[in-house]
């Protein structure tokens, strides 16, 4: 769910752009540094961006009848960390705005704040917390993806509420309205995206273990210890 072009009044559009900018610039710096040290990561980062875009094109069956699309930033936050996702998410939003007419240019800042900043950080925070509490990879992934999705939707609803406070009950009432209307599609989607993440990572731990170890998602388990002893 992205805010459409022209939907936010100009001061809000500018305000959210200013709010999202430091995170995106920080992400851009991280990417520039990474590419300077390892020129080959340009292609891996590009692949990660393309995957995030494509993940949002995978349809999931949903309770509300129509199918819905995952946001994909939670998976990206677990795999590539939130600062990088702030930039990749913004690039994906730009492409969605221009290739799918989904989202917009003046609302890019507001959407980036919800989709590329709050979503990945909330998901990643929840992931680290569940892992620190001793949970396995898959529960952590479920919580990360579901929460990244929910946090994005809650942030978008609050952005809309701030822009369009209710005539009688103010910003709080408006937040209730927007949360309620979009909950119909977004809450089942969050659960669905969490489930999809579990299935995705279950396949990845079998088929792409070396990549997950390199990204630091999985600890190099049995294979690493003999190697250390050998040293």
């Amino acid at each position: 769910m992205h805010i459409a072009e022209g939907f936010l009044p100009a001061p809000h559009a500018v305000g959210w752009t200013v709010a999202a900018a430091p995170f995106v610039v920080h992400g851009a710096r991280a990417v520039v540094r990474e590419v300077r040290e390892h020129p080959e990561s340009t292609l891996l980062l590009g692949a990660a961006g393309a995957f995030t875009f494509v993940l949002s094109a995978i349809k999931l069956p949903s309770v509300t009848g129509s199918s819905s699309h995952p946001t994909g930033t939670g998976a990206g936050a677990v795999l590539f960390r939130p600062p990088v996702m702030a930039l990749l998410g913004t690039v994906v939003l730009l492409f969605q705005a221009l290739l799918l007419a989904h989202g917009g240019l003046t609302t890019l800042g507001a959407n980036a704040f919800a989709f590329a900043v709050v979503g990945p950080w909330a998901g990643y925070g929840a992931y680290r917390l569940t892992r620190a509490l001793g949970a396995g990879l898959l529960p952590g992934v479920f919580v990360a993806l579901a929460l990244a999705d929910l946090a994005t939707y809650v942030t978008t609803s609050l952005q809309l509420a701030l822009a369009f406070p209710d005539a009688a009950s103010g910003v709080l009432g408006a937040a209730g309205k927007f949360l309620g209307v979009f909950a119909l599609t977004q809450v089942p989607l969050a659960v669905g995206e969490g489930l999809l993440g579990v299935l995705l990572f279950r396949v990845l731990t079998v088929n792409a273990r070396p990549e997950l170890e390199r990204l630091g998602v999985l600890r190099p388990a049995a294979a690493a210890e003999p190697a250390e002893e050998a040293r």
Binding site: F51, I58, A208
Partner: peptide, 16 residues
């Protein structure tokens, strides 16, 4: 759901 998970995993490993 199972197919979508496998699909996402296949696309990610292919992109890598």
């Amino acid at each position: 759901y199972r197919s979508s998970g496998a699909l996402a995993a296949a696309v990610l490993t292919r992109s890598w």
